[in-house]
Amino acid sequence: MRDVAIVSFAQAPNVRCETERNEVEMLMPVVAEALAASGIARGEIGFTVSGSCDYIAGQPFAFVSGIDAVGPWPPINESHVEMDGAFALYEAWLKIQSGEVDSALVYAFGKSSMGDIAEVLTLQLDPYTVAPLWPDAVSLAALQARVALDRSRVTERAMAEVAARSRRSAKANPNAQLRGDFDVDALLAEPYLVAPLRKHDCPPVTDGAAAVVLAAGELASRSCARPAWIRGIDHRIECHSLGARDLARSASTEIAGEKAGAFTGSFDVAELHAPFTHQELILCSALRMAPSVSVNPSGGALAANAVMVTGLIRLGEAAARIHAGDARRVLAHATSGPCLQQNLVCVMEA
């Protein structure tokens, strides 16, 4: 395996609704910032790959105009996944591993504000037997939370504590959308939104964009004073059918964690893509997180959740801790699909 590192990361401010700029206008400064930070010239990038989704944008081929933000001329080696940008990063990592290229630009964008995101996500479900019933994403998450409360050590108080900690941590993140000090008892006194979930258990609706530059070997060392070297990266999917899964645990995260090397050594920081509070608890359990690990110092998906971007931001935020010298070994996680169906785990070291 080649040594590959995240050498730069940039993101747009996460906002409830970006009214002025379209996706390309949002992406341009982000791509430019990530490239500038890497010192790798636009024309020198070996591979470009993005993650986005037509149903977020409400139109087919939404990714097509996105590449204008990169200025792909002369023509570039380029691809796109209809997935979170974290999975685009995996494709970029593969390209570098195959020896075809030495560097890659990965970007993602999504304006969740355009539609009713909880309803839009309903279209991810089995179109014959489940989607026609229109269970929305919050209701499905509530179903999972119910199982977790009944079957594991997850409690409503622990969930509220996740929310309070995430939004307190987000105070130090200038790009976060939801931040502030919240009292756990006060949160628990709030009414249910979809029982057993209260408003604080759910992510905000967010518009965002992010970009990451990957580089191999010496190029990485030249591009970044402290590259975040990828020591392991893996992703796994599990059954779609909710009835066929144990929703209180995340079997696919356990496998991906094992393959990525998450169960050896300790971590300073973990950035987990958990849009709902109980999901962070499920993931911490699946990844056997020690209490000493700083989980989601960025505030995580509970502080900003631009769907299709949030996972890539977790990888970028975790890498940025290494770049800044604040951490030596970090774990990043991204998820996709209803109730944590698909999960990616990445271990990075200074």
Binding site: T19, E20, N22, E23, G58, P132
Partner: peptide
């Protein structure tokens, strides 16, 4: 075959240039 109507509403924003 079954018919399952889908209706989603979006708010489109043209961006600065457009």
């Amino acid at each position: 075959s079954i018919t399952t109507p889908i209706r989603l509403e979006y708010v489109y924003r043209p961006g600065r240039a457009t």
